[in-house]
Computed example of a mutant assay.
Amino acid sequence: MLTYLQIIAGIWIVFMILFFIPALRDGIPVERRSSRYIRWSFMVALAVVILAIVLATYEPDALVLRVIPGSPLAGMTGIVITLAGLGFSAWARYHLGRYWSSMVMIKVGHQLIRTGPYRIVRNPIYTGILIAFVGAAIAIGELLAFVALVIGFASIWVKIKAEEEILLEKFGEEYLQYKRDVRAAIIPWVV
């Protein structure tokens, strides 16, 4: 019988396959890339590795501390939240279409998308992914999962800042107006 975590992992695998396959078909030449994101990503990853080494050395049991009791309710809640988050990301990916990229870049003919979930939040793919991370953390129930959630949020925030910089450069006042119209970068009506 499959565990809750195996089900969540399977959901993620299907999501990633469906998310990336259209990108293979929709190759558009790149107008501009951001190198800033790559530098910041490296620094975040390095900080995570250092933190993991320090914790493993001085407090090896701290990260496996259970903060949510393992139960069928926690497992099912995690699955439902993961599905909801990845569904929201998939909806955003559909609206972004051929302009989507895993890296921070502007493609030739790039348009500013303001439809679907982009009317609610400026970065709905990341919103959905973070929701899915919350689902996984609930199902796992250990402190390490919530630490990973915070690290995931920080790395996504770095990427959002790099994307905003490149979008502002490309779209200028149109992007500033979009930011005024849709205030939330990642959490609707909050941040």
Rank of each mutant, 00 (worst) to 15 (best):
L2V: 11
I8Q: 01
A9P: 12
A9W: 11
I11T: 03
W12A: 07
I13Y: 07
F15Y: 15
M16Y: 08
F19I: 05
P22S: 06
R25I: 09
G27F: 15
I28D: 00
I28N: 01
P29W: 14
R32P: 03
I38C: 09
R39S: 12
W40L: 15
F42S: 11
M43F: 12
I50S: 03
I53Q: 09
I53H: 08
V54M: 14
T57K: 10
T57V: 07
D61P: 14
D61H: 15
A62V: 13
A62S: 11
L65H: 08
G70H: 10
M76G: 05
I79W: 09
V80P: 08
T82P: 04
L83D: 10
A84M: 12
L86N: 03
G87E: 06
F88I: 14
A90S: 07
A90Q: 08
A90V: 10
R93G: 07
Y94M: 09
M105G: 10
I106R: 00
R114N: 04
R114M: 09
I120Q: 02
V121T: 02
I129K: 03
L130A: 02
A132N: 04
A132L: 15
V134L: 12
A137L: 01
I138E: 04
A139Q: 05
A145S: 00
A148M: 08
L149G: 00
V150C: 12
I151S: 06
G152H: 06
F153G: 13
E163V: 01
E164A: 07
E164Q: 08
L167Y: 01
L167V: 06
L167P: 00
L168Y: 15
G172D: 12
E173K: 11
E174D: 12
L176Q: 11
Y178M: 05
D181V: 10
V182C: 06
I186L: 15
V190I: 09
V191A: 15
